[in-house]
């Protein structure tokens, strides 16, 4: 580990060389803002910016979720309205049950595997817990635990994504294609967007793990961990919404 050499050798002859090496190694930037600057609000610029970014993400996911809901409604309305079978049923006066059955069959709900998706939700919640514990560890200077919890978060996140891959595969095999119906398009776009965000978070986590193994993610950079954590919890929050709105509410 280059960094350990650099810091331990300070009293040896190679002090200046180590210092130089360390300078090369040094990676402060806006990405890892660890200076305590004077700011008007007394808050860190990075954290404020992260919250603003998350605010804008709220509007993004809001639009996607409402698009999904609208598409679902439209899909069912269209399906019922354009179906001679249903119209016949209505004219025969036995519409209620039949129409409901039609909707239930054509909708996306029959595909849902609620036990499995619940498990996915638990996994994502677990990863949120380990993320927050990682942040706790780094503020306490416990770098061993930091690595463990970061890795755990990443592994759990990847497991969640594996669940997503599994779910998409089964849905696709069972006939819900992306281009086949409005519902398919809306469903895959919404969950796919969430998945893309999780993947982005995973790569950030991977970088944190790498940096922490290089001893570059330390107490003074706790905020970087916190920022990635904020993003990660936000992705979790979005899943909380999607899970209830898309999966549980018919």
């Amino acid at each position: 580990m280059a960094e350990t050499t650099a810091t331990e050798d300070l009293d040896h002859e190679g002090a200046a060389a180590a210092e130089f090496a360390d300078q090369l190694n040094d990676t402060p930037s806006d990405f890892v803002h660890h200076e305590e600057h004077y700011t008007s609000l007394g808050l860190s610029n990075m954290k404020l910016a992260m919250w603003l970014f998350l605010g804008s993400e709220v509007l993004l996911f809001g639009a996607l979720i409402s698009t999904y809901l609208l598409s679902k409604t439209r899909f069912i309305t269209e399906l019922v309205a354009g179906n001679p079978y249903v119209i016949e049923g209505i004219s025969n006066g036995e519409n209620g049950a039949l129409v409901n059955e039609m909707i239930a069959e054509a909708s996306v709900e029959p595909l849902f595997d609620i036990p499995f998706t619940s498990l996915s939700s638990f996994i994502l919640l677990m990863s949120s817990l380990s993320m927050v514990l990682a942040h706790k560890s780094v503020t306490e200077g416990n770098y061993k635990n930091l690595r463990i919890w970061l890795s755990t978060t990443m592994l759990l996140g990847a497991t969640f994504m594996a669940g997503q891959v599994y779910e998409f595969t089964t849905f696709y095999r069972e006939g819900l294609t992306y281009d086949g119906s409005l519902l398919g398009t809306a469903f895959y776009t919404l969950t796919g967007f969430h998945g893309a965000h999780v993947t982005g978070g995973l790569i950030m986590l991977g970088s944190l793990i790498y940096l922490s193994f290089k001893n570059k993610m330390q107490m003074d950079r706790a905020e970087t961990v916190e920022l990635v954590g904020l993003y990660w919890h936000f992705v979790d929050i979005v899943w909380v919404l999607i899970f209830t709105i898309v999966y549980l509410i018919p």
């Binding site: 808050l43 954290k47 404020l48 919250w51 603003l52 605010g55 804008s56 709220v58 509007l59």
Partner: peptide, 9 residues
């Protein structure tokens, strides 16, 4: 402010 930025959104 964090809550505010997020809350407005």
């Amino acid at each position: 402010w964090f809550t505010l930025a997020f809350g407005i959104a």
